[in-house]
């Protein structure tokens, strides 16, 4: 059992892959971490010594924003836009696409499931 950055317990997978289970760490960052700490990419999490796990944990604490902190930062950024009253903020408020996509059709990710309109069928 390896506990890195709070709640995440990825084990029996290769180290770079296991690290991507942490929010805020993707393939690229995971590889960088392995390189910085000096862990072979082919090794698995359950083969790591306590010292190595600690080294990873310390590296992440010092250099990467992950999990709760990252989520908080993201929501803060969105909230900032909404408070500003700029176009991007307005789009966030209305739960519509922010980056100029069409909304005539599609945009279901932001709008949620389609709502039936009464009397639309001929």
């Amino acid at each position: 059992m390896a506990r890195i950055a709070g709640v995440n317990i990825p084990t029996s997978k290769r180290v770079p892959i296991a690290l991507t289970y942490i929010t805020g760490i993707g393939n690229n960052v995971a590889e960088t971490i392995c390189e910085a700490v000096g862990i072979d990419r082919a090794r698995r999490v359950n083969e790591l010594s306590d010292a190595e796990v600690l080294a990873i944990r310390e590296y992440i604490d010092a250099n990467v924003t992950v999990e709760g902190d990252l989520r908080r930062a993201t929501t803060m950024n969105i909230k900032r836009l909404m408070d500003l009253g700029c176009y991007r903020g307005l789009r966030h408020r209305k739960n519509l696409p922010v980056r100029g996509q069409r909304t005539h059709t599609n945009a279901r990710t932001r709008k949620g499931p389609a709502k039936a309109i009464a009397g639309k069928k001929k």
Partner: peptide, 27 residues
């Protein structure tokens, strides 16, 4: 204009469309 707006464009703060919602929404 406040400090946070620096770097953005003026147009972002002046919406060009008014949307009052659909009649069905009101119902």
């Amino acid at each position: 204009v406040t400090e946070e707006m620096i770097g953005q464009k003026f147009g972002e703060y002046s919406p060009t469309r008014t949307y009052y919602g659909h009649a069905a929404d009101k119902k």
